[in-house]
């Protein structure tokens, strides 16, 4: 640990916090000084919460989302429609879709996207696990909800091909103009996709 201007215990907290995303040394120092001034109970609550986070949170054995039991709350919920499965890249995407509250089926988290520049191939993702769920869970439709980036689209194309070969209905979420958006500021590709996937009103 580098020698700092703070007493050792304080310096240690600053060092730990400044490793966090979006937090530099100054913000880390401000947070550490806040913790120093906070009540013992508040700090104890934080410590317990952090320990529990690491101890209790694991990946759902079925869909690989975050869970505190064997199954995540969504997989364990009997009211979810089991025939429809939505594939997402990471748990953050799952939470975003859940916030929208529209999808009533179950999920599968791939744990990343196919990326040639990073050397990530299909076998580095949880694709085999996805295929092994199709039959036992009697999946009727797979909805691919991956980002419309180079990596996301390539993964979508690969999964569509593989799933079609297995005789499963496969769909992907639509690409188009975001709500509150402006046609003038949209790129040609988005406009093309939006026109191609127009719907009857």
């Amino acid at each position: 640990m580098p020698k700092g201007i703070y007493p050792a215990p304080l310096q240690k907290v600053v060092n730990c916090l400044s490793k966090w995303p979006g937090i530099g040394e100054k913000t880390a120092a401000r947070l550490a000084l806040y913790l120093l001034r906070a009540s013992t109970a508040e700090v104890a609550e934080l410590t317990q919460a952090l320990t529990a986070l690491k101890d209790k949170i694991r990946l759902c054995s079925r869909c690989f989302a975050f869970a505190d039991q064997e199954l995540c709350p969504i997989c364990a919920d009997p009211d979810r429609y089991q025939g429809q499965l939505c594939v997402v890249a990471d748990p953050g995407d799952l939470l975003a879709l859940e916030r929208a509250g529209f999808f009533a089926g179950v999920y599968h988290v791939l744990g990343g996207l196919i990326s040639p520049l990073e050397g990530v191939g299909p076998e580095d993702l949880r694709i085999a696990e996805l295929f092994s769920r199709l039959e036992p869970e009697n999946i009727k439709e797979v909805v691919l909800a991956l980002n419309p980036s180079l990596e996301g689209e390539s993964t979508t194309a690969y999964l569509s091909e593989q799933l079609r070969q297995r005789g499963i209905k496969v769909t992907r979420i639509a690409y188009g103009i975001p709500m509150g958006g402006d046609l003038k500021y949209c790129d040609q590709q988005t406009l093309k996709e939006a026109l191609r996937h127009r719907v009857e009103t």
Binding site: I114, P116, P122, L150, E153, S154, A157, Y158, Q188, Q189
Partner: peptide, 24 residues
């Protein structure tokens, strides 16, 4: 400003991999 995104590359992993190799 986008001139072309070569959308065909995204349809096939082999093409994508070759594009990555040559660009690298």
């Amino acid at each position: 400003e986008l001139v072309s995104s070569y959308p065909g590359l995204r349809q096939d992993l082999q093409r994508l991999g070759v594009a990555a190799c040559l660009s690298e």
